[in-house]
Protein backbone atom coordinates (compact mmCIF):
# COMPACT_ATOMS: atom_id res chain seq x y z
CA UNK A 1 0.00 0.00 0.00
CA UNK A 2 1.54 3.26 -1.04
CA UNK A 3 0.26 6.38 0.68
CA UNK A 4 -1.83 8.71 -1.49
CA UNK A 5 -1.78 6.59 -4.58
CA UNK A 6 -4.74 4.40 -5.48
CA UNK A 7 -4.56 1.18 -7.49
CA UNK A 8 -6.44 2.86 -10.34
CA UNK A 9 -3.71 5.39 -10.93
CA UNK A 10 -1.05 2.74 -11.13
CA UNK A 11 -3.18 0.54 -13.40
CA UNK A 12 -3.71 3.56 -15.67
CA UNK A 13 0.03 4.04 -15.80
CA UNK A 14 0.69 0.39 -16.72
CA UNK A 15 -2.04 0.47 -19.35
CA UNK A 16 -0.43 3.50 -20.94
CA UNK A 17 2.93 1.70 -20.81
CA UNK A 18 1.36 -1.38 -22.40
CA UNK A 19 -0.12 0.50 -25.30
CA UNK A 20 3.04 2.48 -25.88
CA UNK A 21 4.71 -0.90 -26.24
CA UNK A 22 2.01 -2.11 -28.63
CA UNK A 23 2.29 1.06 -30.69
CA UNK A 24 6.04 0.74 -30.87
CA UNK A 25 5.75 -2.94 -31.80
CA UNK A 26 3.44 -2.15 -34.67
CA UNK A 27 5.17 0.90 -36.07
CA UNK A 28 8.92 0.50 -35.59
CA UNK A 29 10.93 -0.52 -38.64
CA UNK A 30 13.89 -1.83 -36.78
CA UNK A 31 13.92 -5.28 -35.19
CA UNK A 32 15.89 -4.07 -32.15
CA UNK A 33 13.31 -1.35 -31.49
CA UNK A 34 10.55 -3.93 -31.78
CA UNK A 35 12.36 -6.02 -29.20
CA UNK A 36 12.51 -3.02 -26.87
CA UNK A 37 8.76 -2.50 -27.36
CA UNK A 38 8.09 -6.08 -26.41
CA UNK A 39 10.09 -5.49 -23.24
CA UNK A 40 7.85 -2.55 -22.42
CA UNK A 41 4.73 -4.68 -22.82
CA UNK A 42 6.25 -7.27 -20.54
CA UNK A 43 7.23 -4.66 -17.99
CA UNK A 44 3.70 -3.30 -17.94
CA UNK A 45 2.38 -6.73 -17.06
CA UNK A 46 5.09 -7.24 -14.44
CA UNK A 47 4.13 -4.03 -12.69
CA UNK A 48 0.48 -5.14 -12.85
CA UNK A 49 1.33 -8.38 -11.08
CA UNK A 50 3.21 -6.62 -8.29
CA UNK A 51 0.58 -3.91 -7.81
CA UNK A 52 -2.37 -6.29 -7.74
CA UNK A 53 -0.56 -8.48 -5.30
CA UNK A 54 0.29 -5.50 -3.07
CA UNK A 55 -3.17 -3.92 -3.08
CA UNK A 56 -5.51 -6.88 -3.09
CA UNK A 57 -3.60 -9.64 -1.27
CA UNK A 58 -1.00 -7.88 0.89
CA UNK A 59 -0.27 -11.02 2.91
CA UNK A 60 0.69 -13.16 -0.07
CA UNK A 61 3.74 -13.24 -2.34
CA UNK A 62 2.65 -15.10 -5.51
CA UNK A 63 2.41 -11.97 -7.64
CA UNK A 64 5.90 -10.84 -6.70
CA UNK A 65 7.38 -14.26 -7.34
CA UNK A 66 5.59 -14.45 -10.65
CA UNK A 67 7.03 -11.12 -11.72
CA UNK A 68 10.55 -12.41 -11.01
CA UNK A 69 9.69 -15.45 -13.08
CA UNK A 70 8.54 -13.24 -15.96
CA UNK A 71 11.76 -11.19 -15.78
CA UNK A 72 13.81 -14.38 -16.06
CA UNK A 73 11.78 -15.59 -19.02
CA UNK A 74 12.03 -12.18 -20.65
CA UNK A 75 15.80 -12.24 -20.30
CA UNK A 76 15.96 -15.63 -21.97
CA UNK A 77 13.60 -14.52 -24.67
CA UNK A 78 15.66 -11.41 -25.35
CA UNK A 79 18.82 -13.45 -25.63
CA UNK A 80 17.11 -15.72 -28.12
CA UNK A 81 15.70 -12.85 -30.11
CA UNK A 82 19.04 -11.09 -30.29
CA UNK A 83 20.67 -14.30 -31.42
CA UNK A 84 18.10 -14.64 -34.20
CA UNK A 85 18.58 -11.05 -35.21
CA UNK A 86 22.36 -11.43 -35.36
CA UNK A 87 22.03 -14.51 -37.52
CA UNK A 88 19.56 -12.72 -39.74
CA UNK A 89 21.99 -9.83 -40.08
CA UNK A 90 24.69 -12.21 -41.20
CA UNK A 91 22.40 -13.54 -43.88
CA UNK A 92 20.81 -10.41 -45.28
CA UNK A 93 23.00 -7.61 -43.80
CA UNK A 94 19.98 -5.82 -42.45
CA UNK A 95 17.87 -5.61 -39.34
CA UNK A 96 14.98 -3.85 -41.07
CA UNK A 97 11.57 -5.51 -40.76
CA UNK A 98 10.73 -5.10 -44.42
CA UNK A 99 13.83 -7.05 -45.44
CA UNK A 100 12.70 -10.08 -43.46
CA UNK A 101 9.82 -10.62 -45.88
CA UNK A 102 12.09 -13.01 -47.79
CA UNK A 103 11.29 -15.58 -45.12
CA UNK A 104 7.62 -15.88 -46.07
CA UNK A 105 6.39 -19.17 -47.48
Amino acid sequence: MIEGITIYEILTLTTILFFIGVYGFLTRRNLISILISVEMILNASVVNFVIINKYLYPDELQGVLFSIFIIAVAAAETALAVAIIINLYRQISSVEVKDTEVMKY
Binding site: F25, L26, I34, V97, K98, E101, V102, M103, K104, Y105
Partner: peptide, 14 residues
Amino acid sequence: LQSGKVQDYAFAFI
Protein backbone atom coordinates in the same frame (compact mmCIF):
# COMPACT_ATOMS: atom_id res chain seq x y z
CA LEU B 1 -2.47 -13.74 -47.06
CA GLN B 2 0.91 -14.34 -45.51
CA SER B 3 2.80 -11.16 -46.21
CA GLY B 4 5.90 -12.12 -44.31
CA LYS B 5 5.77 -8.85 -42.40
CA VAL B 6 6.01 -9.51 -38.69
CA GLN B 7 4.04 -6.43 -37.85
CA ASP B 8 1.07 -7.45 -39.98
CA TYR B 9 0.85 -10.63 -38.01
CA ALA B 10 1.20 -8.76 -34.76
CA PHE B 11 -1.53 -6.38 -35.76
CA ALA B 12 -3.85 -9.19 -36.66
CA PHE B 13 -3.07 -10.85 -33.37
CA ILE B 14 -3.70 -7.76 -31.31
